[in-house]
Write a protein that binds this DNA or RNA. Structure first.
Lengths: 333, 333
DNA sequence: GTGAAAGCGCTAACAC
DNA sequence: GTGTTAGCGCTTTCAC
């Protein structure tokens, strides 16, 4: 590995001059700068980021904490992360993957310190507020996506307005008996979505159609199936269904179809998330899109900002959703 | 940030004794070791990995290169990476994400050097062999998954046997008019799968049913749809279809269904990959499973091995596939 | 405009 | 067993 010392020798300069030339300092003559640059390039010199980090006290690396249990394999994570990466990469930052379980006995807070990251993005892992506070104690900028509790330093999709939009869309198609398949009303997101449905129903003076008492913690297909069954048995067939997740919408579709109902002819159904499979299932699922790309970009910009300005707090950011119209909803005859 | 020097002062020892104690060197008395450990813990001491890397010339970080264009959002990547991470994490390694496009003008080879990673995993990005060779020149252990060309230092699914198994399964169900929807026969994987079909047909003395001349570069739904159409128009309805990817299988299903055929009653169909949506579509797609988890684990073990033994080469590893039986194939009446 | 030298936090000879 | 010291490769005062 060729070091800055070799370059100094090759160019008959001191290491400090070489360093300044390489880093575009103003106080080195244009001529020697060019000369040194060329020599370095010819010699195949690549700086050593580790050495730079040590002296600059800056690693140009951002830690990304994610839930091992859920893995990388949810679209939420991968789409957000892609946009996040693109944003921070422009400023020369790299991503270090940090699992929420620890490496060598360190939890992710200590691990972040150990690896000297400049900031931390916690994706869907904010379960423990304590960790976030410890990050801040360590003067580490930290940012959370979709935490389970109302939190500072967080970026959310506007779930409340999202469900309102969904119900509004169904209403506009002429539906009045609109059922809701809830998530887990004890979490922040679940509560917001639930509240949105209730408010909507009240505003339009409709009758709520819901499987009271259910807590769909996983937003899964199976839960959607069962919730739809409960609703059907208690209330009969609604005109439309709004589900708090795409997977639950899909589960509901399954139940309805296996009972001989056709979608969207007999009943309209709308999901929430806009996962990839919305395009693949039949009928293609109309849904509320969470703007993952925007969330990732904003997260990147915000975190860079915090790093550069050494701020540790910012107010929550809400990202708007939008309806993606496909084939699972239809105007009421 | 509390450093080793503080701990030395607090414990009235030299820095070297502290370092040795912290790193479990044998030549420090059990008593002082315990004492120092306690003082360090109480002081909230966390070692500085950057400083350690600099002097040890080892970062305990592995670079993962992936294709920005495809993003993180393919199941292949995320499942493999999850298993890979779990494996290397046990040995104290972290993952640094490296996009195949560069950061600050460095390509990923130079970037890997810059960040001093100990080894590199290239996921589905081996398009340029040159980069891999440059890695090796730099004495960096490098390993590739699913490269487009036959390559050393690579781990593959056994595509050839996979397609053979698929065709064998259809045959065993009683089908004889078995069509094949190919990928891109000009790539390694495409060629292997194609060859497997041809060999199978020959062995069983069947008639090949294939859309000659097509190159399905993306293995996409759209390509599957069109290829199925071509096959149908040229050869009529086969008894079964073997597709070189799940997405193409899905496209074929679409085409067949929109022409009034029922799956699996009128025609059986099998895919390749075992993507998540296989469980979600109707009928659930029978397919050849690529063992992503195993690939990731093997990749981790192999790379760690290379790093520890300073080897730069290993012979290609083939990972076996298996059939996942679901609902899209049926015994011929 | 250039160079000498201190030091980032840590490890590892080597001496005692 | 413990301490002294020389670096790892680089940046950054400060003096010239």
């Amino acid at each position: 590995m060729v070091t800055i010392i070799e370059i100094a020798k090759l160019s008959n300069c001191s290491v400090s001059t070489v360093s300044k030339a390489l880093n575009n300092y103003p106080d080195v003559s244009e001529k020697t700068r060019k000369r040194i640059m060329k020599i370095a390039a010819d010699a195949g010199y690549i700086p050593n980021a580790t050495a730079q980090s040590l002296v600059r006290k800056k690693s140009n690396t951002i830690g990304v904490v994610y839930e091992v249990e859920r893995g990388l394999k949810n679209l939420f994570f991968s789409e957000v992360l892609d946009a996040f990466r693109a944003t921070i990469e422009q400023k020369g930052y790299d991503i270090l993957l940090l699992s929420n379980k620890s490496n060598r006995g360190l939890d992710y807070v200590d691990h972040s310190r150990f690896k000297q990251v400049d900031g931390v993005l916690i994706v869907a892992g904010g379960r423990n507020l304590d960790a976030i506070n410890r990050m801040k104690e360590n003067l580490l900028p930290v940012l959370t996506l979709d935490p389970p509790l109302e939190l500072k330093n967080a970026i959310y999709s506007n779930s409340y307005e999202g469900i309102k939009k969904a119900c509004g869309y169904l209403y506009q198609l002429g539906h009045r008996r609109i059922a809701y398949i809830q998530g887990d009303p004890e979490t922040l997101i679940g509560a917001q979505r639930h509240q949105a449905y209730q408010d909507f129903i009240e505003e339009k003076a409709l009758k709520p159609i819901i499987a009271e008492g259910r807590f769909n913690t996983y937003y899964s297909m199976e839960e959607g199936y069962q919730t739809m069954q409960t609703i059907f048995e208690r209330h009969g067939l609604p005109e439309a269904v709004c589900a708090a997740s795409d997977l639950m919408a899909l589960g509901a579709m399954r139940y309805l179809r296996s009972n001989g109902f056709s979608i969207p002819d007999d009943i309209s159904i709308i999901g929430f998330d806009n996962l990839q499979f919305c395009e693949i299932v039949e009928p293609r699922l109309t849904t509320v899109k969470q703007d993952y790309k925007h969330i990732g970009t904003i997260a990147g910009e915000t975190l860079l900002n915090m790093i550069e300005n050494k701020t540790l707090d910012f107010e929550p950011i809400l990202v708007e959703t939008s309806i993606v119209v496909r084939d699972s909803c239809k105007k009421r005859q």
